[in-house]
Write a protein that binds this DNA or RNA. Structure first.
Length: 275
DNA sequence: ATGGTAGATATTCTA
């Protein structure tokens, strides 16, 4: 007898401090009713992670990898999950930028990766800027890892703040951002190589909203009126392996979240699948 | 060309 497909609504959100924005997380849970939420920049150690408050929003299954003050990723789920141990220590830095879990969908498991790629600093020159060097090395290492078989063996999802806006219509001005970290050709080229692993990951937001429509997920705090100037970039992504193409049902970027009280500079990105 | 804001932490770093 055929298995009844399960709705999987997945959100990725750079929350920029989970402790500061717990109320916004609860709002997100009510507004979108995601089954799984991938968070980046939780900025909290595992010992200090607000587990009780997050469980109270309805997410009983939680995987966390955090450190003090910076970085930090978490996966919150209504679906049971099993954490994947032994993922690489990217660039040997011991920082908290990647979590992988298997979602317990009976008869149809899905592996989920949550990434927070280094932002890369201000100067797009790896010789002059170690943060940019780190970013390029990080993406290259991840690409090698997936290319060497980490992506083989079934359905997988990559979600997270990849800190790269790959397409010309993923930024407010392609021409003006070619020299700006997040949209330089070396970065978009490397991201393309990563995306080409696993037989070609599907960019789910662009599956639903193809170019030349503009699509952003981040607006700087430094713009006085973010909506008026609309100088956005699409830094947050959800990719799926090609064998999941038929599961994609809807996608949306929750732009209104940028106007929430005490907003993050990133907004939630959401995809719905029937898996 | 510059500086603008935000968060965690400690008076500076990261984004």
């Amino acid at each position: 007898m055929a298995r009844r497909p399960k709705r999987l609504r997945l959100v990725t959100w750079n929350i920029n401090s989970v402790r500061l924005r717990l109320a916004r997380l609860a709002d997100l849970a009510v507004a979108l009713e995601p089954d799984v939420i991938c968070l980046q920049e939780t900025k909290v150690t595992d010992a200090e992670f607000p587990l009780r408050e997050v469980r109270a929003t309805g997410y009983r299954h939680i995987a966390i990898r955090g450190e003090r003050g910076y970085n930090g990723v978490a996966i919150l789920s209504r679906i049971a999950l099993a954490r994947i141990d032994g993922t690489p220590d990217w660039c040997g830095k011991g920082d908290c930028r990647h979590l992988a879990v298997d979602l317990d969908i009976p008869g149809a498991p899905v592996r989920l990766h949550n990434f927070y790629v280094p932002a890369g600093g201000d100067i797009p020159d790896p010789a002059a800027n170690p943060k940019f060097r780190h970013k390029l090395d990080f993406v290259a290492e991840v690409t090698t890892w997936f290319g060497n078989g980490a992506a083989s063996g079934g359905r997988q999802i990559i979600a997270g703040d990849l800190n790269i806006a790959p397409l010309p219509d993923d930024v407010w001005s392609h021409r003006q951002l070619l020299d700006v970290v997040s949209h330089t050709p070396v970065e978009t080229g490397l991201l393309g190589q990563w995306q080409a692993t696993a037989g070609g990951w599907i960019d789910t937001m662009r599956h639903f909203v193809p170019p030349p429509q503009k699509l952003y997920s981040w607006w700087s705090y430094r713009n006085r009126d973010w909506r008026l100037s609309d100088r956005g970039r699409r830094l947050d992504h959800i990719w799926v392996t090609p064998d999941m193409a038929g599961t994609l049902k809807a996608g949306q970027i929750m732009k209104d979240a940028r106007d929430w009280p005490l907003a993050s500079d990133h907004v939630p990105v959401c995809v719905e699948m029937l898996v």
